[in-house]
Computed example of a mutant assay.
Amino acid sequence: MPATDSTPTSDENIIRTFHESEAAMRHANFYRYFLGVRPNPLLRQTLVRIAAHAGQKMDPDLFHLTLCVIAEAEERDPFLLPRVRAALADQELCAFRVALGRVRGGRKGALVRTRGRQDEIQFFYRLLLRLLATRGIEPKHRKSGLHPHITLGHDACTFEPFKMAFDWFPDELLLIESEVGRTRHNVIGRWPLLPPRQGLLPLDEPAPAWRLAS
């Protein structure tokens, strides 16, 4: 009898890889839903360069600023979006200033925090909580309030903190479904933001700047 070769063929490898990928696609550890904003293209490019300087390799599509986590579940929640839509219906939501200022690193990764006064973003955050409460939606992990920041990556790192200066006005509020364990963000809801309230609109587009702290 001819000898048989038990080594999988290339087709069998392709099929096996497909089924393994399909299984991975079906399952996340859990789903986290949060309201937040994403950087505009100019800020995103700046964050990519800063993240590289900080030794981070996170997908730029994942850059965001979380305002509040509103749900966590083992399975997708098909009822959450309609509730959020109802809470925000007919509301005039205005853009707010995000003043990014200082980049720090540590054993949990690197992030950039805001600088100076945060009146605009804190006002928006409190308004958002009041609106969500009308539909029985309460934020999670916010006992100490909002501490605005953008995560640049989760790789442990050690470097001297350095400064950046970038004033940013988001143009839309997003409801994002995070597939925790799969590093995937799905935008499931969008609400355009009106121009900033009178007195907050910048006269000129601020130039991005970042430098090592002295």
Rank of each mutant, 00 (worst) to 15 (best):
A89I: 01
R197C: 10
E179Y: 08
D171E: 11
E20C: 11
P202E: 01
R97E: 14
L80M: 02
L203I: 09
E172T: 09
R26H: 02
F30W: 05
A110W: 08
G101F: 10
L43C: 02
R49M: 06
H149G: 13
T46P: 01
A23C: 06
E74I: 11
P2C: 05
H19T: 14
Y125E: 11
R16G: 11
L93W: 13
L35H: 01
K163M: 15
F96R: 09
R104Q: 15
T66H: 01
W191A: 14
D59W: 11
L43F: 15
L128V: 02
T46E: 02
L200P: 03
Y31H: 08
K143V: 04
Q118S: 05
D155M: 05
R102N: 14
E72I: 07
L201G: 05
R190S: 14
V180M: 11
G181F: 00
D204M: 12
L93K: 04
R135N: 06
D204E: 13
L193C: 10
P192K: 03
L100G: 09
V112S: 09
N13Q: 15
R115K: 14
P8Q: 07
A24F: 06
L42P: 00
L35N: 06
N29A: 11
P41H: 01
T4P: 08
D155G: 09
E205V: 05
L127Y: 12
H149W: 08
Y125K: 03
L132Q: 04
P148V: 09
R104M: 13
V84G: 14
F162I: 06
H154V: 01
G199E: 09
D11G: 12
L93F: 11
P8N: 07
D167L: 03
L81I: 00
